[in-house]
Design a protein around this nucleic acid. Structure first.
Length: 432
DNA sequence: TCCTGCGGGTTTA
DNA sequence: TAAACCCGCAGGA
């Protein structure tokens, strides 16, 4: 093929529009799935790409009827923030993911800020000429064409995975508290109105279930295979137990539901088992999630991480919690479950399991005090477990402002990184 | 309970 | 006429 022909063909491939009658089918290079598409971008994914098949986006996109069954259109809902613009320590801001369902979103906005109890507000997306940014998906032959129109003018919300995990954790904790309350109130236990059980009596013992990396005989220190699943990482992140805990029906870890959710996440991310080699170019399908995860892990979605270690996408934007210990944290056993959640104010439903908030804070804080990642980072392949631990201190501090935006996704694209980007990123890791 | 996709219908520029 | 938006429904997790 003559170079000129190639160029013109390339131009055709680049110049397509989602509304074109005919889209290019001679696609030589398909794109990695983009979790945070922004600006006026176009991508061509493999029809085998699971994320593309699901029309996923980490932006909160809702379906929009464009009366065209061939082209799926979705518009951005923006981000939910605290109307008081509160900040946790280190200036962390709250960026919650707007619920996609209208009713759920209305309900969400009646809830209060988990950080300051202030009302939440939805920042609508106005990045496309005053209207929400729109994403278009079109399946055509072996490819899935994606086009975004507009540039998000708001911070990134928490990802779908984060939001789901948050809900699950909330459920799990509520369930756990409920069970513990019942257990603690044995037949002889008297029901005293307003009585608050001691944390020390709770079956859900974070202290016991936590295995610190490199700590006192935890899984890592004991030389147990370090290839933990992200699911476990989630649990670890929350101070929950590892696989052994989960497999044990008598475990004090928590509801099986949580494990199932994490297992699903793990399977999704890991392709159902061990980590796989990076995909060869053009064969994206089952690896897309892995790639997305790897990229997120490598980037931490917080490119300016202080220690440069990658983090799983879990705790960053929208992670409202201050992990410093409460004043009475030195005596965890003396902590009480507030019968009336501190954040539960009239007309304001708590977003998080407030009764355990202190507990989370306390334990996780201890984790990070006792374990800091080494200067040389491991890849997720080596130790994804580590990521969950290292991830907490990293947060999305700054808004992705249009002027000073530092979008690594974009940078990666410009760098024309192919499937080796994972390794390359991980090699870059110690430099950051 | 929520997400997702679909599609009928309305409003507005 | 196109685009945005509202709403309800169904299937699925």
């Amino acid at each position: 093929m003559e170079p000129e022909d190639f160029e013109s063909e390339d131009k055709d491939i680049l110049n397509w529009d989602i509304n074109d009658v005919k889209l290019p089918q001679d696609v030589k290079k398909i794109d990695w799935f983009q979790e945070w598409p922004d600006s006026y971008e176009k991508y061509i994914y493999s029809s085998e790409d699971r994320s593309a098949q699901r029309h996923l986006s980490s932006w909160a996109m809702r379906n929009t009827n464009n009366h065209n069954s061939r082209i799926l259109k979705k518009s951005c809902l923006g981000v939910v923030v605290c109307s008081r613009d509160c900040s946790a320590k280190e200036g962390r801001k709250l960026y919650l993911r707007p619920a996609i369902c209208d009713k759920a979103r209305q309900k969400q906005q009646r809830k209060c800020c988990p950080n300051c109890d202030g009302p939440l507000k939805l920042i609508p997306c106005r990045g496309h000429g005053g209207f929400p940014v729109t994403n278009f998906w079109r399946h055509e032959g072996r490819f899935i064409f994606f086009q975004s129109k507009g540039e998000h003018d708001h911070p990134k919300p928490e990802t779908k995975l984060e939001a789901e995990a948050r809900r699950t954790i909330k459920k799990a904790h509520v369930a756990s508290s409920s069970i513990s309350l019942k257990l603690n109130r044995g037949p002889e236990a008297k029901s005293v109105p307003g009585e608050a059980p001691s944390w020390g009596n709770l079956n859900w013992s974070f202290q016991e279930s936590l295995h610190l990396p490199g700590g006192d005989g935890g899984p890592l220190a004991a030389g147990i295979p370090q290839q933990k699943s992200p699911g476990e990482c989630f649990l670890k992140s929350y101070g929950l137990g590892g696989a052994s805990d989960l497999a044990d029906p008598t475990s004090t870890v928590g509801p099986a539901e949580l494990y199932e959710k994490c297992k699903v996440s793990s399977a999704r991310i890991y392709g159902g088992g061990d980590l796989l080699q990076p995909p060869v170019a053009g064969v994206l399908s089952d690896y897309s999630d892995l790639q997305t995860w790897n990229k997120n892990a490598a980037l931490g979605r917080n490119p300016l991480n202080d220690n440069g270690c990658p983090s799983y996408a879990f705790p960053q934007a929208g992670w409202p919690y201050d992990f410093s210990p409460p004043p009475n944290a030195l005596d965890p056993l003396s902590q009480q479950i507030p019968v009336e959640p501190p954040s539960a104010k009239a007309g304001c439903l708590p977003l998080w399991p407030t009764p355990g908030a202190d507990l989370y804070e306390e334990k996780v804080h201890m984790d990070f005090n006792s374990y800091y990642p080494p200067a040389t980072c491991h890849s997720p392949q080596e130790d994804p477990f580590l990521f969950a631990y290292t991830s907490y201190p990293h947060h999305q501090y700054s808004l992705p402002g249009k002027s000073g935006k530092w979008n690594f996704d974009e940078e990666m694209r410009y760098m024309s990184l192919d499937h080796y980007n994972n390794e390359m990123l991980l090699n870059l890791c110690p430099l950051r």
